[in-house]
């Protein structure tokens, strides 16, 4: 564990709490993409299957259970409790392509052609593009509640810090994880426009609006 990874994990954790806070405080899931949330639930469930096979640490186990449980809880909130506040007209990104593309990539790029490894690769590739429906929704509405932008920032920042973590581990442990690296770079790149607007507007006290 190094500082980048710890802060990254805490940001990831924070992003989920911010999202829950946004939904509970405003009693609305307006501005949140159900499709992105669905993809994250799929990512967590397919990646953390090793909960049943491998013990790493209490920290690791608790975080994994939390990510799976919270992602499913958010789906429940959006689908049932606050269903009336969700606008499917704005959430029209075709996730079939993201899912299909991730399946194909996982079948080609994996460490072993067994279900667990293919699903792990699948989750890595899917995570890298899972934010697209949310960013697409943002581009359609052209603006966002500030708390929603904090959520997206924390979620994007987590993988950017993982890049620092991987660089650290490469330098000090010689550890290289090539698929996660590539996916992580793509994932962070997809956020770059968002980061720029977040930095120039939200952090200067202005509302998040697309130029």
């Amino acid at each position: 564990m190094n500082i980048f990874r710890l802060v990254a994990d805490l940001m990831h954790l924070a992003s989920i709490f911010i999202l829950l806070l946004k939904i509970q405080k405003t009693r609305s899931c307006a501005g949140i993409s159900f499709k992105t949330q669905l993809l994250y639930a799929i990512v967590f469930v397919t990646r953390y299957l090793d909960l049943f096979t491998t013990w790493i640490s209490l920290y690791n186990t608790i975080m994994k259970i939390f990510f799976i449980a919270s992602s499913i809880y958010i789906l429940y909130l959006m689908k049932y409790k606050f269903r009336a506040t969700y606008d499917p007209i704005l959430d029209t990104f075709r996730i079939e392509f993201l899912l299909g593309g991730s399946v194909i990539l996982a079948l080609i790029f994996n460490y072993d052609f067994i279900p667990m490894e293919i699903l792990w690769s699948f989750s890595i590739f899917l995570e890298s593009v899972a934010i697209l429906p949310q960013l697409f929704m943002l581009s359609r509405t052209g603006e966002a509640e500030t708390i929603t932008t904090h959520y997206i920032f924390a979620l994007g920042g987590y993988r950017a810090l993982y890049l620092c973590n991987w660089l650290w581990r490469y330098i000090f442990d010689g550890h290289v994880e090539v698929y996660a690296w590539i996916a992580g770079v793509i994932q962070t790149a997809l956020y770059s426009d968002f980061f720029y607007i977040y930095y120039t507007k939200v952090l200067h006290g202005k509302k998040f609006e697309l130029p």
Binding site: D9, I56, S57, N60, K64, Y111, R169, H175, E177, V178
Partner: peptide, 10 residues
């Protein structure tokens, strides 16, 4: 070795 440590991350 490539990939050997990856399972300890989230």
């Amino acid at each position: 070795e490539i990939g050997i440590h990856r399972k300890d991350e989230l």
